[in-house]
Design a protein around this nucleic acid. Structure first.
Lengths: 334, 334
DNA sequence: TTGAAAGCGTTACCAC
DNA sequence: GTGGTAACGCTTTCAA
C-alpha cells in the first residue's frame, strides 16, 4: 500500500502538499494539484483511515444504534438505516452499526475508542438510561425520537401529536363524528418509546377540540389481536364510522377481518393509517395515510449530526410536520 | 481523554506493559496486571482505535455490504444483519455498514483506507462484478451467496438445491405426485442472484428422481401476481395437489386467495414454504417450511471471516443443509 | 517479567 | 504557494 510520502515523491512535492491537495484546506496551484492527483491515481493511493483519525481526531464515521426488538416494524427500521447510510455518504462519512442491546456500554465503547465522530440513536425511550451516558461523551449525538426531557439534546422525529390531530381533522372533514384509534401493541406503550403516547395525546386533544366522540385501544399482534380490538371498539363505541390505525402490523389482518365481516372500506368504514407510503399502497385497499417519513427523519438526523460537528447548530428538538396522503380508504359518511 | 502513557504513569509501569496487559500477548505478573487494570478503571481509559489500527494494522471492524433493492425481503436482510453484528461482537469486532449501491467503489474505499479487517458481502450475483475487485483487496472477504464460479472464494449459504430436494421428498412422502413451484418474482431470476436458480435446479432434478409431475413458475408481487401464478398452474398442470412456495412475499396473498376460493390448506392443497421460522408461524395456517437460517448463515460468515484472518482456514464454499419443519400445511393426499 | 524506543501514516503548525 | 517536522497514541521489536 502506497503512503502519502510515496505520492509526494512521485509527484515531486512534499507530504504536506499532498495532504492539502486532498483536504483543500489551503490553496494549491492548478499545476501542482494536477501532478499530485495524477500520482495518486497512478499509485492507487488511499489515505490510511487510522492514521488520519490519529492525526486529525476525526474519523469520518457515524455510529447508528438500531433496535432489535420484536415489536418494532422491521421494514421501517431498515428505511431509517438506509436513509442514514445514504445521507452519511453524502457527507463522506461511513456508518458503524450498533445494536441497542449493547446498551450504554456500546456507546461508551465506540465513543471512548474514538471510533466515531457522532452518534445517532434510534428507538429512544421516555426515560432512556442511555441519555445521561450520551451527555458524558465527547462526541455529539442525535436522538431519533423524543425523550421525556429533551432539554439540551438534539432530537429528530415526526410530530406524532400533530399527526394524530391532522388525521382526526381529515376524518372530521369527511363528516365522521365517531372515531376509534387502533393503537400499537400494549408492549409499545409499556416500553416507553414515547411516540405512541404522543400520538395518543394528540388524538385525545384533537378529539376534544373537534367535538368528536372517540375511543382508543391498543391492538395485540396477529389476527386475534385485531378481532379483540374491533370487538372492544364495537362494544365500547357502537356506531363508529372511522378507524385511525397507528399500527402497521395490524393493517393486513384488519382489512382481512373487515372483508370477512362484509364491511366495505370506505363504504361502511373509513380508515386512515399511520404508516410508510409503500405499505399504504401495497394493500388491497390503497389506504389514506399519514406518512411515516423514515427517509426524511434519517436524513435529517445525519444533517443534524453534521451541523453539530461543525458547530453550526445547537442541540434542540426538530419535529417534522405530518403529511396526509389521500387515497381510497377514507370516504364521506354514508 | 487519558492515553496509554497516563495509565502507565498512574500504575508506575511502562507503556509497553500497559499494552501487554491489554493484549495478553506476553505474561505479566498478577500484581502488575492488577495495578494496571486499576489505573485503567480509575482513569476511564479506552485505547484509541485509530492509533491502534495504525500501529497494529488491525481495525477490529468488519464491513458488511447489504442490498437495498425492492425485491428482497427486508426482514430477512435484517436477520442477516443482526446475526452478523451479534457474532462480530463476540469476536470483539464492530460492523461498518455499506450499501450494495456503492458497488465496487465502496469496497475499494473502505478496504483501501484500511477501515476494516475483512468484508462480508450479501446478495451476490452469479457473475458479480464485485468479485474480481474483492480479489484485489488486501483484506479477506466472505460472500453470503454462491457465484457461478466460487473457486478460491469463501462462500456461505443455505444449500438451496438440497432444500428443494428435501421439500419435494417431504411432499412425495405424503403421497403427492403433482407439485407446483411458486417461485420468486421474475426480477430475482433476471438479476442473477443464484439462489433462485439453484433452488429451481434442485427442484427439477429431484422431480425427475422421484418421478413426480411438476411445473414451476415465477410469481409477481402482490395479490394479482399470486392469482396469475395460480391460474398458470391450474391450466398448465391440472390436479396439482401441493405447492412449494419459494417466495416469502407471496405467502400472505396466496393463503388469502386460496381461502377466497374455498380451498382449504392442507385439506385440498398442501403447502411447503421456504421462509424464516417466524413468518411460517405467524400466518393463519402454520406452514410446514424449509427454514431460511439467516441467523446461522450470518454467524457462519463472521466465523469464516475470523478464521480467514487468523489463517486458520482457506477460502472455500460452505453450504448449510436444509431443515424441514413440519407444521400444519402439509397433509396426506386426500 | 519489564522497559525503551522505533515506527505506523497522517495532519497541521511554523517557516519561507 | 510550498516545504519541513512535530505531534497524534498505540504496538512491537530489541534489550535487559
Amino acid at each position: 500500500m502506497p503512503t502519502i510520502s510515496d505520492v509526494a515523491r512521485a509527484a515531486g512535492v512534499s507530504m504536506s502538499t499532498v495532504s492539502y491537495v486532498l483536504s483543500g484546506r489551503r490553496p494549491i496551484s492548478a499545476e501542482t494539484s494536477a501532478r499530485v492527483r495524477a500520482a495518486i491515481a497512478e499509485l492507487g493511493y488511499h489515505p490510511h483511515a487510522g492514521a488520519r483519525a490519529l492525526a486529525s481526531s476525526r474519523t469520518s464515521v457515524l455510529a447508528l444504534v438500531v433496535p432489535l426488538r420484536a415489536d418494532v416494524n422491521v421494514p421501517v427500521i431498515m428505511q431509517f438505516v438506509t436513509a442514514v447510510v445514504t445521507a452519511a455518504r453524502r457527507y463522506h462519512h461511513d456508518v458503524l452499526l450498533l445494536t441497542k442491546d449493547e446498551g450504554t456500554a456500546g456507546l461508551e465503547r465506540v465513543a471512548g475508542a474514538t471510533m466515531v465522530d457522532a452518534l445517532i440513536v434510534m428507538d429512544v425511550e421516555g426515560d432512556d438510561v442511555r441519555i445521561p451516558a450520551l451527555g458524558r461523551l465527547k462526541q455529539p449525538s442525535v436522538l431519533i425520537g423524543l425523550p421525556d426531557d429533551p432539554a439540551g439534546i438534539a432530537c429528530v422525529d415526526l410530530d406524532f401529536a400533530a399527526t394524530a390531530r391532522e388525521c382526526l381533522t381529515h376524518l372530521a372533514g369527511h363528516g365522521h363524528r365517531r372515531v376509534a384509534l387502533v393503537g400499537p401493541s400494549p408492549s409499545v406503550y409499556e416500553r416507553g418509546t414515547t411516540y405512541a403516547q404522543r400520538f395518543l395525546d394528540g388524538f385525545t386533544d384533537a378529539s376534544a377540540e373537534l367535538g368528536l366522540e372517540t375511543v382508543a385501544h391498543s391492538c395485540e399482534p396477529g389476527a386475534d389481536g385485531v378481532r379483540d380490538c374491533l370487538a372492544w371498539i364495537d362494544s365500547e363505541q357502537p356506531g363508529t364510522t372511522a378507524l385511525l390505525v397507528h399500527n402497521e402490523d395490524a393493517l393486513v389482518p384488519l382489512l382481512d377481518e373487515l372483508r370477512a365481516r362484509g364491511r366495505s372500506v370506505p363504504g361502511d368504514l373509513s380508515i386512515v393509517a399511520v404508516c410508510p407510503r409503500d405499505v399504504a399502497t401495497s394493500l388491497p385497499v390503497k389506504l389514506t395515510s399519514a406518512d411515516i417519513p423514515a427517509h426524511d427523519v434519517g436524513t435529517l438526523a445525519v444533517e443534524t449530526a453534521m451541523a453539530l460537528l461543525e458547530g453550526r447548530k445547537a442541540p434542540g428538538t426538530r419535529l417534522l410536520p405530518p403529511t396526509i396522503i389521500e387515497r381510497d380508504s377514507c370516504g364521506p359518511l354514508s
